[in-house]
Nucleic acid binder design. Structure first.
Length: 668
RNA sequence: UGGGGAUUGGUGUAACGGUAGCACGACUGACUCUGACUCAGUUAGUCUAGGUUCAAAUCCUAGAUCCCCAGCCA
């Protein structure tokens, strides 16, 4: 029982080509940056990616996509991958986050079996934007000298007011001040002679640009604050746009992959590097020296899972409000939360790779994340038995005190995992849900007089039901068929089983099993897109996202170490939580097994291919106004719509209406 | 109002002028000592309107819708 799920082979990820591969292939073909086409023997520059988090929060599943994407590219092209902390804003950043990020990235990258950012063939290393502060400052001075930057003494409010509109240019009265004056003020800024906000260094680009990022963006702002890495060396800090390209450039990053919202920043990214390179030469001759490396920024759509919020602000809010028990609460979409929940790095990797890489902003069914996890754990997790809601069964034809040690298959998916021994006794517990006093037609588990198989043990027939004064079932009496030891029906002369049972249920020995706290998690939100309905994402919080029960687990689990994963048969996958103390085990349910029956019974199983439209959505789809839509439905429309008062329409109905509207154009 | 992106089954994603394919989901069924897993089958799509072409998801024109941008955040 020591098989560690995380050591089992990961499901082979599909090669999954995407548009970034096309771009990189083109760069290689064009011998851009001297990449050459034979990557294995490249000298100097190679395909080099990076993951650049700001250490101002915990990583979440969205970041996991970026990390895997960047690392997978480095691996595919025999290149390198850097972890770089984009620590340019001391007022928001903290060492606590630095440590957590390092640890989470390393954990996730273990899914690649190719080392991480510090070890292995693709290890580029760990870097800090703050190590480049001097370089950035020198380049800023250079820009001022080239007449491409100036010190602006407008306050933040004034800058906002003068920002202009798409058709009205921005203004700054300091734009045309002399180079010497700007140089002096810049030195003063650096020397700490000015208060926060007193002035900034701005690039001189285009105050009338329709792209606001180019309306003389700020390069440096004054922040009198200690930095976790550089201490009090600096009191001016570079802005993201100014800093990021240089970070990439200095690390010889070839492809700087970021999310869609930075698309509008790419002209600026390119402008800054071009501005520095102006006057520079390939061989270093001339006043400014050698050209600096110019990486290619590429944007992709971030991951947006349903039933989830990912913004740092909202996650922080839940932690502060104690909606959850911290950043590593198993319900959180943070990497730390998912780790504690029991997710494997392999399953996270297959999940983020399976959703693809595009520029289309789409949301992903969280169910896919759960499926990737089931897929991995099915192959990897040893099986065990536990009962979440115990119901005692006394086997009347089993002698008191007799113990039968039975063989159990540890993992049917993995014969190498072998077998284990489980004791069978006169008193056992079964799952309360596996018994119905008055069974429904399709219920093929235990009922009075019915026979089921106890997994790997004996066929069991319920003989009587014992209730308390309140009429609640407290105990069952039953008998077993001794001829079915091991769970197999005896075979007749023809070699066929002499009897069949439809149901197999799990059980534990009352005497040998032990109680444990089991935490059952549900989604944190009840709406696919939290906040869509009311405008406030908190309105969609799921009040029942955590349920705690006292279960009974088979004895073999008693010494399971923290972090060990199991499949409790028929119930789901579970992991030993870090809250476990000697003699007091705590289990997290990672995810349930798929259960068509339960889903259908709870009415949760609405066919996914019947999309429901609200009237507003349908009206939008039909490109008509909502009141017109109502008129169409109740008066003019297809006859079978005339009498309905439903507030929702199915996809098919919307299609029907669409056809109708097409054939019967509405007046204006 | 200006600029930058995007639009293919229910969902996600291919097709790079030449048979609209794959995965997930859903639905049927088979198998089963986990109502799991596995296997087989079914289902369903190119935002709209024009145009070019022997041929258009792909090229052209016009439009629609959604997302991003006016932090001294990243």
């Amino acid at each position: 029982m020591t098989t560690d799920a995380s050591k089992a082979p990961a499901p082979a990820p599909s090669p999954a080509r995407h548009f970034i591969h096309d771009l990189i292939d083109a760069d290689i073909k064009a011998n851009r940056w001297g990449l050459g086409t034979d990557l294995a023997t490249r000298e100097g520059i190679c395909i080099h990616t990076r993951f650049p988090p700001e250490p101002n929060g915990y990583l979440h599943v969205g970041h996991a996509k970026s990390i895997c994407l960047n690392f997978a590219i480095a691996q595919a092209y025999k290149g390198k991958f850097n972890l770089r902390f984009d620590d340019t804003n001391p007022s928001k950043e903290d060492q606590e986050y630095v440590d957590a990020i390092k640890d989470d990235v390393r954990w996730l990258l273990s899914a690649f079996n190719a080392g991480d950012y510090e070890t292995g063939p693709h290890a580029g290393g760990i870097f800090w934007a703050s190590d480049y502060f001097q370089f950035m400052f020198d380049r800023a001075v250079e820009l001022v000298k080239k007449g491409k930057a100036y010190v602006c003494q407008l306050t933040g409010d004034e800058v906002s007011k003068r920002r202009g509109t798409p058709s009205v240019p921005a203004t700054s009265p300091f734009r045309d001040r002399s180079i010497t004056e700007s140089l002096t003020l810049l030195e003063e800024m650096r020397a700490g002679k000015h208060q926060n906000g007193a002035m900034t260094l701005r690039a001189k680009i285009d105050l009338a640009s329709p792209n606001f990022n180019l309306r003389d963006p700020v390069l440096y702002r004054i922040v009198h604050e200690s930095h976790h890495n550089t201490g009090s060396t600096w009191c001016i800090y570079p802005m993201y746009d100014w800093a990021h390209g240089f970070e990439d450039s200095l690390e010889k990053i070839t492809h700087s992959i970021c999310t869609l919202e930075f698309e509008n920043h790419r002209p600026l990214y390119d402008w800054f590097i071009a501005a520095v390179n102006e006057g520079r030469t390939d061989d270093g001759s001339g006043p400014y020296g050698k050209k600096i490396h110019h990486p290619q920024q590429i944007e992709f759509a971030k991951l947006r899972p349903t039933y989830t919020v990912l913004s740092k602000r909202n996650l922080l809010r839940m932690v502060q409000d104690a909606t959850v028990r911290g950043w590593d609460d198993p319900r959180m979409p943070t990497i730390r939360g998912l780790r504690r929940r029991g997710y494997t790095p392999e399953s996270l990797r297959t999940f983020v790779e399976s959703v693809g890489v595009t520029k289309v902003e789409s949301s992903i069914d969280v169910g896919r994340m759960e499926n990737a996890l089931r897929e991995h754990l099915n192959k990897a997790a040893p099986r065990a038995m536990g009962v979440l809601n115990p119901l005692k069964v006394v086997i009347e034809n089993w002698p008191e005190g007799k113990v039968d040690n039975l063989d159990f298959v540890i993992n049917p998916e993995d014969p190498a995992a072998g077998k284990r021994t489980v004791p069978f006794t006169r008193e056992i517990y079964i799952e309360r849900d596996d018994f119905m006093e008055v069974p429904t037609p399709k219920f093929h588990r235990l009922a009075p007089g019915a026979e089921v198989r106890l997994r790997w043990a004996y066929f069991l027939t319920c003989t009587s039901v014992i209730k308390n004064a309140a009429g609640e079932i407290t105990e069952l009496r039953a008998t077993i068929d001794p001829a079915t030891r091991g769970g197999d029906s005896p075979t007749g002369p023809d070699g066929q089983p002499t009897k069949k049972v439809k149901g197999t249920i799990h059980w534990v020995s009352a005497q040998h099993s032990f109680p444990a706290e089991v935490r059952l998690f549900d989604r944190l939100f009840t709406a696919e897109e939290p906040g869509l309905r009311t405008g406030n994402w908190l309105d969609d919080l799921n009040p029942k996202s955590l349920t705690t029960v006292t279960a009974r687990l088979e004895a073999a689990l008693k010494d399971a170490p923290i972090g060990q994963r199991y499949q409790l048969e028929r119930l789901g996958y579970f992991i030993v939580d870090q809250d476990t103390k000697p003699g007091a085990m705590v289990l997290n349910r990672i995810v349930t097994l798929k259960d068509d029956l339960a889903a259908a019974a709870k009415g949760e199983k609405k066919p996914a291919n019947i999309r429901m439209y609200s009237l507003a959505e349908a009206a939008h789809e039909l490109k008509i106004k909502q009141d017109k839509l109502l008129a169409v439905i109740t008066h003019g429309g297809p006859s079978d719509f005339a009498t309905r008062e439903k507030k929702e329409l199915t996809l098919d109905e919307v299609r029907k209406l669409k056809e109708w509207v097409k054939a019967n154009p509405l007046p204006r």
